[in-house]
């Protein structure tokens, strides 16, 4: 593992300007990813986990915008890191990074390929954009990629259309497209959502083997804790646009700190925290995007809610021990003391 991160997000904010006011989808997210490492970003729908990675890719579309923060991307090991936000999202510079060294795969592989273009045209397009290969070389490389992601008979499959492939096969093709230009970092946004469980496993195993081969960093966005347990090295838990806990994958399951993480784990079948009893649902609902929650955004649903503290101030992400950072006053002694005195 190299010492310098490939991708580093610093206090990134994403806002959507709507007629009813600005929706603050990402509220100061900071994380980094290193070579050969998988960082999982976990959270419920709408917590901003996808939006933060879209920000890195320059894929936030109006009325949305990255309103603050820095996104450092290091194209070469030991090279200079570039703040991607210094460049317009559709500038030549950003387009050369997006799809090349910084690639992404999406959920819903069923609609990820154009229904009126051949599979090969998609592969050819990305190679044409990011390499100097000639037509013949691009074809050879495409076939090589298809074979690499486990699609047999590549030359024939190259000329077929997306509707001639199953969902799992389509996601393999998306992976082939993402890997076409040897990315340093792959962002996988719920890559197995909508696929059945056996196919899920195949896809994740494929990603892991390709990661090992190419020494990629991977950002794995998911709401499925089983996927996290199997694949991640480190985990960031997000709630309402903020990271509430970061830790390594073992500590997450053995010793979760933030009450939100604890409740998430309790709501999973087979989790040690659930014990013998019934599965526990998290109390209440996620506040609406325009609702303002004073203090810690999780306090209305929190079992450890401390009146007078949690509804007053926003906790920052601070180290709890050498393994875990959590944004919770339970672990921030200074605040606790202040409250008791």
């Amino acid at each position: 593992m190299s010492k310098e991160p490939i991708l580093k997000l610093e206090n990134v904010h994403v806002k959507y300007d709507t007629d009813d006011g600005a929706v603050h989808a990402v509220r100061g997210v900071t994380y980094d990813v290193y070579e050969d490492e998988t960082l999982a970003i976990v959270g419920e729908s709408g917590c901003g986990k996808s939006q933060s990675s879209y920000a890195a890719m320059g894929l936030i579309q109006p009325p949305g915008r990255v309103s603050d923060g820095k996104i450092w991307f290091r194209n070469k090991d030991g090279g200079e890191a570039v703040n991607l936000l210094d460049h317009h999202k559709d500038s030549k510079k950003m387009r050369s990074i997006r799809g090349g060294p910084l690639a992404m795969i999406f959920q819903e592989p069923m609609t990820a390929l154009s229904p009126v273009h051949r599979i090969g045209q998609h592969l050819d397009e990305v190679l044409k954009l990011h390499t100097d290969l000639n037509k013949k070389q691009r074809f050879d490389r495409s076939c090589e990629l298809l074979t690499q992601v486990g699609i047999p008979d590549a030359a024939k499959r190259y000329t077929q259309y997306s509707f001639e492939f199953s969902g799992g096969m389509r996601q393999r093709i998306m992976i082939a497209i993402a890997l076409a230009c040897n990315p340093r970092l792959l962002i996988a946004d719920e890559p197995t959502t909508g696929l059945d469980v056996t196919i899920q496993n195949q896809i994740l195993e494929l990603m892991a083997s390709l990661q090992e081969k190419h020494h990629m960093g991977v950002v794995l966005i998911t709401h499925d804790l089983a996927v996290v347990a199997e694949n991640a090295d480190r985990v960031a838990v997000m709630y309402l646009g903020r990271i509430v806990e970061t830790t390594d994958v073992h500590t997450l399951f053995e010793d979760p700190k933030h009450p939100y993480t604890v409740s998430l784990l309790k709501s999973v079948v087979g989790s040690p925290l659930t014990g013998e009893g019934r599965l526990q649902a998290i109390r209440g609902t996620v506040p609406g995007p325009l609702d303002v929650v004073p203090g810690c955004p999780f306090h209305p649903r929190c079992d450890e809610y401390m009146p007078g503290i949690c509804d007053q101030e926003l906790p920052t992400l601070e180290a709890v021990n050498e393994k875990t950072c959590a944004a919770c006053f339970l672990y921030q002694n200074r605040k606790k003391k202040e409250a008791s005195s």
Binding site: D90, G99, T111, A112, V116, L129
Partner: peptide, 23 residues
């Protein structure tokens, strides 16, 4: 989704629109 995917491949947004959704 395929429009977003084409953008994620680094294609110019105007070309993306002409090549995929318009087609």
């Amino acid at each position: 989704q395929y429009v977003l995917c084409a953008r994620a491949r680094g294609m110019h947004p105007v070309k993306v629109i002409l090549k995929y959704p318009v087609r």
